[in-house]
Write a protein that binds this DNA or RNA. Sequence first.
RNA 1: GCCGGGAUGGCGGAACGGUAGACGCAGCGGUCUUAAACACCGCGGCUCGAAAGAGCGUGCGGGUUCGAGCCCCGCUCCCGGCACCA
Length: 809
Amino acid sequence: MAIPMGEERDDDPRTYEARWRARWQADGLDRTDLDGATRPYYNLMMFPYPSAEGLHVGNTYAYTGADIHGRFQRLQGRDVFEPIGFDAFGIHSENYAIQVGRHPMELVRQNVARFRSQLERLGAQFDWSRAVDTTDPGYYRWTQWLFLQLWKGDLAYRATRAVKWCPKDLTVLADEQVLADGTCERCGTVVLERELEQWFLRITRYAERLLKGLDHLDWSASTVLAQRNWIGRSEGAYLDFPVDGEAPLQVFTTRPDTIFGATFMVLAPDHPRTLELTDPACREAVVAYIEEAERRRIAGQHAEEGPTRGVRLGRDTRHPLTGAALPLYAAEYVLSGYGTGAIMAVPGHDERDHAFARAFGLPIVEVVRGAQDVDAAAHVGQGVLVNSAEFTGTIAPDPARERVVAALEARGLARRAVQFKLRDWGISRQRYWGPPIPAVHCPTCGAVPVPESQLPVLLPFVEAFRPLGTGASPLAAVPAFVNTTCPRCGEPARRETDVSDTFLDSSWYFLRYPSADREDVAFAPEATRRWLPVDTYIGGNEHAVLHLMYARFVSMALHDLGWLDFEEPFVRFRAHGMIVREGAKMSKSRGNVVNPDAYMDRFGTDAFRLYLMFMGPFDEGGDFRDQSINGPSRFLALCLRLQRRVAAVPEPPELARARHACIQKVTLDTPQLKYNTAIAALMTYAKVLRDHPGPLPRASLDTLAQLLAPYAPHTAEELWSRLGGPYSVHRQPWPTFDPALLIDEQATVIVAIDGRRRDQLEVPAGTSAAELERLALALPRVVAHLAGRRPVRVVVVPDRQVNLVLPGA
RNA sequence: GCCGGGAUGGCGGAACGGUAGACGCAGCGGUCUUAAACACCGCGGCUCGAAAGAGCGUGCGGGUUCGAGCCCCGCUCCCGGCACCA
């Protein structure tokens, strides 16, 4: 871009944008009076993880869209609180620090500083006075406090469990951090399983409430659905299958109606009773299979060839209703962690059981009659029960499910149950870069909480912060940290050396913002009452089952523990779309990553903001094309040029009309996050002004500046100031529109024959149907097309269309 | 495999069941300029036609309707998420 010369110089956005930002900052324009707010509106966006690469264009996109929302709410008269912070703990920073050979403490300081200057440049109305940094001891002492409250409420516990282990990051991962292909979401390595003693948070206790709560939230549908699926509620029953000479085998099923189709039973290889239920003659083969399955499980391989691997135990259970012998198997497709770890196999009506029955030559019995031949494939859909004794003829699954359970229940063979896929949240990380979990292990007292008065448990500065790979955190190698005394008995004890998951840091940060200045509490009751729950939360859907689930869980737990008077932290959540570049996902390896700074250097912040929002609907994302930014850039220049044509003239009706139409469109589209069409309306309006001959009334431009304010805050301020408006445009009441002015006087009525457009009529609005029909039939082109035929029917849509329907059409 | 979302000009995208392609990008022609940039004017779905005009057009195949990009049924492909969860 050439440096504009002479008079044009003032229109260079880079000059006035920096000037206005400095002024806003000096005036504290974006700071919120948290105590005095009468119409509080908490506008939250997901705080960034300050990577070494700098602000990603995805961040810019999310923050710009969220900021437009916040600015619009403020212009509507709300006292908007729009905080920002840094989610700076975690494996990602730590790995990067290892890679470049520097210490994360030093690196994070530097990254945060860079992020802050990049964020400031976005022109968002962030209230920096309440910024938080999760790595600040003044923050994480409260993360530790949160953990202690959960522990006190019996929501934190220690257990040895097979957990996901990333062999590259040398740490445990939460289930949510393992991708669908079994790889680590951070580094892409295939994740293994490992038995370790871990801290868990009892999120499963909230499964039902987490699910129920979704019904009343104003959230993006896709996010609600993702949470529902993740929680994975299934209704069914525990059924007891008798075993001769042993305790009965309990299974969980969601399809008790198919019980007459059960032809064999399957246990998870690591089910506690697998060996007990093995016939001595088969023991050797079963032991070998269990070991083999265990090896595969640890190696993270299981999904490849379907449910075809397993072994016969050589013993049977009895069918509880028919008394038939059902052979027992152990197979990997049955998971020990779900239900009871054992199933009744119904090959006719379950795909996995079907595959297994085929592989092992087991009988397949049809009990639900449908279109599907069960010998060829399982019929899992609806049908009528057959071969099912007194239940034959009932519609399955419902109401058959209910009748069978009731009958079994009456005989003491069934118990109704609900199962969830959701598992407890493992938060232990055998790493350095996180808040130490505030616990002490005492040989006599066991795990003891660190007293709240001793918080924070400071993360010591250690040079050797690399993971050890032993299953213990690097902190375990720091005697000064490890050796302590038991807070309960005073005897020598060891400090917990694992740090907590970074998602614990972010599970409560929105509670901290309004109280960020308080050193004595995590969140102050008055500020919390005034500002929470969050009015609108905007962020990426990649956190649908991670952060958003954890934050809901923590809020519910804090509610039950008496710390909060609400359960749901985010009243409204909107997932924004993703930006791709020229059709492809941006990635470093593709080399197509957009650097926001470069565009802002060249075109200014406002043009960049406007372009990002103009690319497409905010919730759908968009496709970044380098040249397309020219449009918004030209548009902003035009807005400033138009100001020079302002004179003391009355507003002509056609300009008033255009102005009110624009107010309407922007006012209605903006709160729905339909930013792209709002911007289009602004452009249309600017073109009307441009094409208007002669001087422009000030009202025309005043409105333009005001409507532009949420979208292009600097340019709007510059324009407003040149128009002589009182500082600041961001403190003006939002313009209103007069619907009376928007009523059309003329109407263009399409004349169609059999739905095909043939001509059009220009008529006064409100012309009667009869008159429209008469006019239409008189049009020469219509007469020509009709060629003497008479329409059998005439459909008139007032002010829009006349459709002449010919016979035989 | 299951669950979402989507498919519209060269490109990004607009369209209460009622003029498909708003707005913008890129392109072409022109005005201004010594020249360029900026700005401004004009053109632009496809086919046939000199034109007037006609026909065809919103992934594919059906349907509902006076009228379908939009509603219904059946597919294809793309994007995202979940996945031996009984």
